[in-house]
Design a binder for these strands. Structure first.
Lengths: 234, 234
DNA sequence: TTGTCATTATGGTCTAGACCAGTTATGATG
DNA sequence: CATCATAACTGGTCTAGACCATAATGACAA
């Protein structure tokens, strides 16, 4: 591993919690004890705990202990949500078909949007159709700097990219910028989405950022207008 | 003082920044130096800096220094913005043409969306076309409970509704719920927006709330797809 | 003038302690 | 058995160092 120790501990604790080692409301071992278990100083252990507190996963109570918080707000309020999560939350079964998946030299707009530099930057570019309960919802093109996906398998990238980034890559996801507009469907898109040419398309461009502000993903999505709508609270 | 040292330092640095000691983009002294100035250990000084980074006031750059961040996000991210404000911010001259403006008995969906009750509720319903620099951008239908607009003139409602609500009505604006979808233009809408029938329309439904959670406005807007896009940060 | 490379300064991480203040469990005492 | 003081434990803060990777600087060579 190359990520900082406290991130590794963060990930380990997160896995433990998600794996059911401790349930909501449970008290986890004291800082001093965990520090011994992980063989780090208490300050380092505290840094790991802090990141989980920031995420709303843990909750500290002075004099009493550190507890597994009952999450809720987080997912709705904060940031980036994957297609998979959105569909699951609506009780739909998400699936997708990968049209293409290959590394390439980035286009000008990819270089600009992803802040790429160096003499020979490379991006992973993939095209996918996404389905809800088997009905095509959207066609998307995603571009990701090659170094970000280093060490991830194709399955991890296509099936659980955000999750893999956090657990295996040690990255922390930040916010996103989106623009939403409307167009009519081209012949190719219409075929992909099983609609007629000229029907309405909701087009979204999204740049997703890491916690430190680095863009790591540039996605262009075209949704079948008749089957999808955006919901926002502000 | 009784607050922790790092909070005191936090406050001092904040005062310094607000007082103009350092301007946006300036580099503040190095951590090691500030630690000496405040006569604390570097770890404690870092804790003070961290709180300011969390607030988006400072920005760290490894190997380079700590800088006063240029804030931005806030205004964009938070709250309800009027068409007028959005256009002004983009340097466009906003205008609008009122198609209809009358009080009516609410439809079922208006009753539901606006939480109307009482035996004879009434809504103000108005239809408008919005322009930017004279080019039609959107057609909107807005419904407002009659009691909300009591005491406001027609000009105040059509020209500066949010502003008039706050100053003359004494209401405090809260959040909003929006759904965004795509459709194709009907004959009537196409005419209003000076586009062809069948062209893409970005359709937004918005319910706007007061601070206390009461809905006070239900707006259905259709934007000319080729002339408008939504921008979001999340 | 340009490119390379070593130096230096910066933030990032980590340690092994310390003391404080709030909470809880333990016992002694009535 | 109930009460209350106290000891033990918890997270919160703080220190005085250390080493690392990155970024900026300046000297030197091409």
């Amino acid at each position: 591993m190359e990520s900082p120790v406290y991130i590794q501990i963060h990930n380990q604790l997160k896995r433990d919690i998600e794996g059911g080692k401790w349930k909501v409301g449970d008290r986890i071992p004291a800082e001093r004890e965990l520090a011994i278990q992980f063989d780090v100083s208490r300050m380092t252990l505290r840094q790991a705990i802090q990141t989980l507190v920031d995420e709303g996963i843990l909750e500290r109570r002075v004099g009493s202990g550190t507890y597994v918080a009952n999450q809720k707000v987080q997912e709705v309020a904060s940031g980036v949500t994957s297609f998979t999560d959105i569909m699951r939350r609506q009780g739909k079964k998400p699936s997708s078909k990968t049209i293409s998946y290959h590394f390439a030299t980035p286009s000008l707009s990819e270089i600009e949007k992803l802040h790429l530099s160096g003499d020979t930057p490379e991006v992973l570019r993939m095209e996918r159709i996404r389905y809800a309960d088997g009905v095509p919802i959207s066609f998307e093109v995603a571009s990701i700097p090659a170094d970000i996906v280093q060490g991830l398998t194709k399955a991890e990238v296509t099936d659980s990219f955000y999750h893999a980034l956090e657990t295996k890559g040690g990255y922390e996801l930040g916010g996103a910028q989106q623009t939403v507009s409307a167009e009519t469907a081209s012949e190719r898109i219409a075929e992909y989405l099983d609609i007629k040419r000229g029907e309405a398309i909701l087009k979204m461009r999204q740049i997703t950022f890491l916690q430190d502000g680095r863009p790591f993903e540039y996605v262009r999505t075209q949704y079948a207008g008749e089957r999808f709508e955006f919901y926002l609270e502000r």
